[in-house]
Design a protein around this nucleic acid. Structure first.
Length: 287
DNA sequence: CCCTATGTTCCCAA
DNA sequence: CTTGGGAACATAGG
């Protein structure tokens, strides 16, 4: 679900409540979290406090008693840094959400449908909600700084994009969404960016001129910055850390607007299929 | 009931 | 190396 703007929103909000907070308890409610074995464990609360040896959950429980220093974003990943060097790396994938509640929550804390993990801090409680259970949570030791590609919030040099794309024939939309190339663009913003840049998402990445890559870079910054300022795009169930909807859905020009008039040229927005995902495009003015 | 869709990413085979 | 397809999962809608 969340792409860069939504994750950035969560990180900024987490940084208003978590730094300095001590982790008092962790409840893991989903056996898939923490790279555990596939098989489900038949218990409502899998682990809280002490864990069975060899369960694969020891790493997560190592967090208890440590204090948060800061929260950073790596692409669409949320990295909660502890003051002793450990990092709790959270990825929300398709349907993950985070909710922060002031104060404590009584155990057991299955207070919402699809609650998968509860982390109790000194003065608040963080809840991971994830219907589809794709979210991942992993504890990384100090010094594991994953090599990341360009972050689009820090500028995307058009010459670099053109150089990387030179040998790539795949559709430019899929190129933009490749997290190994650019970290953070997902299905909503890829459509929006290419609409703003006036480029057809089906074009092979290698076919774009330097001038077109400049348009893509400019559009990317504009689209993502606005989305961050709007605290994300709420299509159905995205909410920020405090449960509020974002407002960027009011600015969407392409995504989910099939059959509606293009606000730039009056053509009709169509929904096409690319790699099993929807893409929204105005064939009249995206070339 | 069956088929398709959904904001992501990993793994595999061609 | 690159790229497309399927899988991981839960639910809603036609």
């Amino acid at each position: 679900m969340p792409e860069l703007p939504e994750v950035e929103t969560l990180c900024r909000q987490l940084n208003t409540v978590l730094p300095g907070e001590k982790i008092l308890r962790i409840e893991v409610l989903d056996s898939r979290l923490g790279n555990m074995a596939r098989k489900r464990i038949d218990s409502d609360i899998l682990f809280s406090g002490t864990v069975p040896a060899g369960s694969g959950m020891e790493k997560i429980m190592m967090l208890v008693g440590r204090r948060v220093s800061t929260v950073t974003r790596k692409g669409k990943g949320i990295h909660i840094q502890l003051d002793d060097g450990l990092t709790a790396a959270l990825h929300l994938r398709m349907s993950g959400r985070l909710l922060y509640l002031a104060g404590d929550v009584p155990t057991p804390s299955k207070i919402f449908p699809y609650s998968r993990m509860v982390i109790g801090f000194s003065s608040g409680t963080l809840v991971l909600i994830d219907p589809r259970r794709f979210a991942t949570f992993d504890v990384q030791p100090e010094g594991v700084a994953p090599l990341l590609p360009d972050d689009p919030m820090k500028g995307l040099p058009a010459p670099r994009l053109r150089k990387i794309a030179a040998a790539r024939r795949r559709p430019v939309k899929s190129f933009l969404m490749d997290q190994k190339i650019i970290a953070g663009i997902g299905n909503i913003y890829a459509s929006e960016i290419l609409f703003a840049a006036g480029i057809d998402p089906r074009r092979p990445a290698c076919s774009l001129t330097m001038a077109e890559w400049r348009k893509v870079a400019t559009a990317t910054r504009a689209i993502l910055c606005r989305a961050v300022n709007c605290r994300g795009t709420t299509i159905s169930d995205w909410r920020d850390l405090f449960g509020r909807s974002g407002t960027n859905q009011d600015h969407l020009e392409a995504y989910s607007r099939q059959g509606k008039p293009c606000r730039r040229c009056g053509g009709i927005i169509e929904r096409i299929d690319q790699g099993g995902r929807g893409t929204w495009v105005c064939s009249m003015c995206q070339r």
